[in-house]
Design a protein around this nucleic acid. Structure first.
Length: 268
DNA sequence: CCCAACTCCTGGGCGC
DNA sequence: TGCGCCCAGGAGTTGG
């Protein structure tokens, strides 16, 4: 599942190849999740940005192409026109220079929008997205205040994207493990909020350094896999021993998400 | 406003 | 070998 490190890895690969390119033609699957891709025909891409898990490509006509990879979305380049025979091709943009940017997505959990710049009414999560984790002006106190706005379980809050942007199921479990915080606690104090922010930054940076976590579907633009799956301490390790205290990690469902934690290091 | 439940999707893994 | 079942889950939607 692409989270901040995966989306940022993709962004870094896309940016040099898309900046300044014109979209000569576009096509898509008929689902409302993807049809707007076609509206980008005629636009020129000015840059490739990222907010949380959303890729945002401003165009020269005052609009933005917004892409969310969902669970299984992949962006890649193809020389020449799109490959119509690919069952999972959901959208494509044929660019100047006889090259196509293809969006493939097996499970169709992703979505593509073309909006007037900054108008995110059709994407409420983006409209209400929390600060970027690596924004230097985002402080531990800000984070604590944002967390205080809700009494839901701390992990649920992280997944909501509102206290902080870009954290999904994998990095939430990793960060809570690193900070020694139980995913079900509903309120944490300033000191623990500061520790959690440090932990989030740490696990996201490690994910970035490893070009992302490939469990099954995630691929970089050049088709490569990430390496971070080999560095996980919590996610997917239910029943295995904790790398810090050797206790067996517990696995349970929280808000319909598999959650793994150490009952000793992450006491309630 | 907040929150919980539901929905979308389909390949891969597993048991038999 | 093949069938059926269940799991993975980000974010939008809906209803209380």
């Amino acid at each position: 599942m692409p989270e901040l490190p995966e989306v940022e890895t993709v962004r870094r690969q896309l940016a040099p190849r898309l900046t300044g390119r014109s979209i000569l033609e576009a096509g898509s699957h008929s689902s409302p999740k993807f049809v707007e891709a076609r509206a980008a025909t005629g636009a020129r891409i000015q840059s490739v940005e990222r907010r949380g898990k959303f890729l945002i490509m401003p165009t020269n006509d005052g609009r933005e192409i917004v892409v969310h990879l969902g669970m299984t979305g992949q962006l890649r380049f193809r020389t020449g026109p799109p490959d119509d025979s690919d069952t999972y091709l959901r959208a494509w943009w044929y660019l100047d220079g006889d090259e196509t940017l293809e969006y493939a997505d097996v499970r169709r959990f992703g979505r593509i929008k073309v909006v007037d710049a900054g108008n995110y009414a059709s994407m409420p999560t983006l409209a209400q997205l929390g600060p970027e984790p690596f924004d230097p002006t985002f402080t531990a106190n800000d984070f604590w205040l944002r967390l205080r706005a809700s009494r839901r379980a701390i992990k649920t809050q992280l997944l909501s994207q509102r206290p902080i942007a870009g954290v999904g199921n994998i990095y939430a479990d990793e960060a809570l493990w690193l900070a020694g915080i139980n995913p079900k606690v509903s309120r944490i104090g300033k000191a623990r909020a500061a520790a959690l922010l440090d932990a989030i930054r740490s696990v996201l940076q490690k994910g970035l350094d490893n070009s992302g976590t490939t469990l099954r579907d995630y691929r970089t633009v050049d088709g490569g896999t990430g390496d971070n799956q080999n560095s996980l301490n919590a996610y997917g390790r239910g029943g295995l021993s904790c790398h810090r205290c050797d206790e067996l990690l517990v696995r349970a469902e929280l808000d319909a998400r598999t959650t793994t934690w150490c009952p000793v290091c992450q006491k309630r």
